[in-house]
Design a protein around this nucleic acid. Structure first.
Lengths: 127, 127
DNA sequence: GCTCATAGTGACATAAATGTTACTCTTGTT
DNA sequence: AACAAGAGTAACATTTATGTCACTATGAGC
């Protein structure tokens, strides 16, 4: 089959990149922190809000269903720890794992850019 | 109305955070880099793939519609520059603006974490 | 024996993001 | 005259992400 595309050397470099890592490292991280509420959940937990109800209240607007989903997913990823106290009414506490704490620099970089450049980006919704 | 919730001091700190910045700096950045293909588009451009067709080919799987959408959005955000050459057939080149380059450290942090911890996160899809 | 609190779950509905396919426009070439 | 190339666009279809609302479980206190 004839090669239709002759891309420059940079593109070769790109292909190498993709073949070296089967899974794109960007996606790995973005999967771990992506989703409408995950960054907020992360921040709230790292600020010391631990119980389900507190978090639900702190994250104004999130539904219990979504909060549960995100917490479960982050737990599955090893980012947070879920501890159930066998009492009535139920009590459950969430906390960052050591692994979860390794995400701090990532969020720091994200937050820093937002603080420095937030005024320059367009916030008007697309029509 | 009676106060039902007595959250700890950390929560107060959180509220302060939210009221200080009307727009959450995390969202600012995540809006700029979020979306299924934006990080990939960014990387491809920064590696030197400039023309629409090349990018469409390099980003295997993206539809022209979505590529166009993302490019327009990133242009609107000032991250990339779009230059149209008045020739037939059309030629358009995209490049990172100086502002766009300020995102490098953000992507670097994201990529670094992915490289270091990619093997530890769960990649099995939810059932 | 009724009510409250907490941390959910389940069924369903809606919104947002992404994909598909066909079509446009303009000139140089066959 | 028909065709090709490059960079899209338009209308529509589908998938994925979120939201809503009602409901569960259990023991304590009234």
């Amino acid at each position: 089959m004839k090669k239709k595309w002759s891309l420059n050397e940079k593109y070769t470099e790109l292909q190498d990149l993709y073949s070296t890592y089967q899974i794109c490292p960007l996606s790995v991280t973005l999967n771990a922190i992506g989703g409408k509420w995950k960054p907020a959940v992360y921040r709230v937990i790292s600020l010391g809000v631990h119980r389900f109800g507190e978090m639900h209240h702190a994250l104004e607007g999130i539904s219990k269903r979504m909060l549960t989903r995100y917490l479960r997913e982050m737990e599955k990823d090893g980012i947070i720890h879920r501890e159930v106290f066998p009492v009535v009414p139920p009590k459950v506490e969430y906390s960052l794992t050591d692994f979860g704490k390794t995400l701090k620099p990532v969020f720091a970089a994200i937050e820093k850019w937002g603080l420095e450049h937030g005024d320059k980006t367009d916030t008007t919704p697309d029509e």
